Simulated scan of single mutants.
Amino acid sequence: MVMITIGVDPHRKVFTASVLDESRRDLDHQHFVNTEKGHADALVWAQSIGSINKIGIEGASGLGRTLAEFLVDRGLDVRDVPPHKTAQRQRGRHEGKSDRLDAHRVAAETQTNDRLAHAFKNSTTAAPNAVRDQIALWHNARISLRKIRVQLIGELDALIQDLPERIRVRLPERTTARARITAVAALGHVRSTDPVQQLRLKLIHHRTKMLKDVLEQDKVAAAELAKLVAASGSTLPSIPGIAARSAAEIILEVGDPRRFTEAGFARFNGTAPIPVSSGEGGGRPRRYRLSRGGNRRLNAAIHRAATTQLRCEPRARELYEGALSRGHTRREAMRILKRHLSNTIHRTMIRDAKQDHLLT
């Protein structure tokens, strides 16, 4: 029986599947409803064409999540194809865009790219991790709360700035917006006969209550994330500079660390240098530059940890100063420290994964 690779372009109500053989020929395509019955019909259709090698789903943790779970439960090799991968295949070919073309590009990427992650960021075919999914929900909630907080603080700062001078002179000068908001709340009920000022004071009172509620929700989310990090068995918070909330973000972005080598993890998070040398023949490259690629959220978490370590961790300071003494720039020295921290994080997560495997 012919070995086939399937690419899936999912949407909320329907999904399109395209089938390629080993010679990358397009054998067939079909549209299905994005329900459990549609998933079963698609599997029967695909198995009638050939033996399934791999199935690539664009956004296997998004719109294609239910289909990915259905297929993983049946032991099939499901890969998560990032949307930008199919965009790269489309670029310069002037083929246009349709569900069929997108599904074909997903199948082609799945067939040619052996480094595509398994569904749900696992190292092998496996169901979603329940703790990681809960971390994702709380982490996304914190992101939303942070956006609301920033918006409320901006609105309150503008409202306070427009208050009458007789009120503003009672507030602290040259301080943060949060301090000004707290000072206005401490004034209590302020009277005014001007209807515009009355409305402004009313809005300040209302927005201040909203901000207080958002801050309380953020505290709850932070506490829940700390509990989930502990429940996951992660020891990342033991690394200086990595708090429970940063550990949660790292766990979420990395998934199963066993899908990376140490060097591969550095490339994934953007701490590995990129060679920009020429004319070295068979020797090693003599020039490198900083990587601007990789997972920028993970890179930012590592950068925050490195910055914290420079303030309070003697070994990090020694590594940084040693790089400067060897002629590296400050930016290169920071990259060296971040790469060292990347290796430490990877080894810690691998050790945690092995320990978790032994316990289960």
Rank of each mutant, 00 (worst) to 15 (best):
T5E: 06
H11D: 06
H11I: 10
L20T: 08
S23N: 14
L27Q: 05
H29R: 14
Q30N: 12
H31C: 15
H31S: 13
N34G: 07
T35S: 15
K37R: 15
H39G: 11
V44Y: 12
A46Q: 13
S48G: 07
G50D: 11
I52P: 02
I52W: 07
N53C: 03
I55E: 07
G59F: 13
L63I: 13
L67C: 14
A68S: 13
L71R: 04
L71V: 13
L71I: 10
R74T: 02
L76I: 08
D77S: 05
D77K: 09
D80C: 05
P82K: 12
H84E: 10
H84V: 15
A87L: 11
Q88R: 11
H94E: 10
E95G: 06
G96H: 03
S98I: 13
D99K: 11
D99Y: 09
L101A: 11
V106M: 04
T110L: 09
L116N: 08
A117M: 07
H118A: 12
A119I: 05
Q134S: 08
A136W: 07
L137R: 15
L137S: 11
H139T: 14
I148C: 05
I148T: 09
R149K: 07
V150G: 01
V150D: 07
Q151V: 06
L156A: 00
I160D: 00
I160C: 02
P164N: 00
P164S: 01
R166N: 02
I167F: 00
P172L: 04
E173N: 03
T175D: 04
T176D: 13
A177P: 01
A177T: 00
A179F: 00
A179H: 10
G188S: 08
V190T: 03
R191M: 10
P195F: 14
P195S: 07
V196T: 07
Q197L: 00
Q198Y: 03
R200K: 04
K202M: 08
L203Y: 06
L203V: 07
I204S: 00
H206F: 03
H206I: 01
R207Y: 10
L211T: 00
V214I: 04
L215Q: 10
L215S: 04
E216M: 09
Q217S: 04
A223N: 04
A223P: 01
L225W: 02
A231H: 09
A231F: 10
A231N: 13
A231V: 11
L236W: 12
P237D: 14
P237M: 07
P240V: 15
S246D: 11
A248F: 12
E249N: 12
I251V: 13
L252A: 12
T261M: 01
E262V: 01
F265N: 01
N269D: 08
T271R: 01
P273I: 08
I274P: 03
I274A: 04
S277M: 08
S277E: 09
G281T: 01
G281C: 06
G282Q: 15
R284D: 10
R286C: 02
R287Q: 09
G293E: 08
G294K: 11
N295G: 04
H303N: 12
H303Q: 10
A306S: 10
Q309T: 03
E313Q: 03
R315W: 11
R317Q: 02
G322E: 05
L324I: 13
T329K: 14
R330K: 15
R331V: 12
E332S: 11
R335P: 07
S342Y: 11
N343C: 13
N343V: 14
I350W: 12
A353M: 09
Q355R: 15
H357F: 14
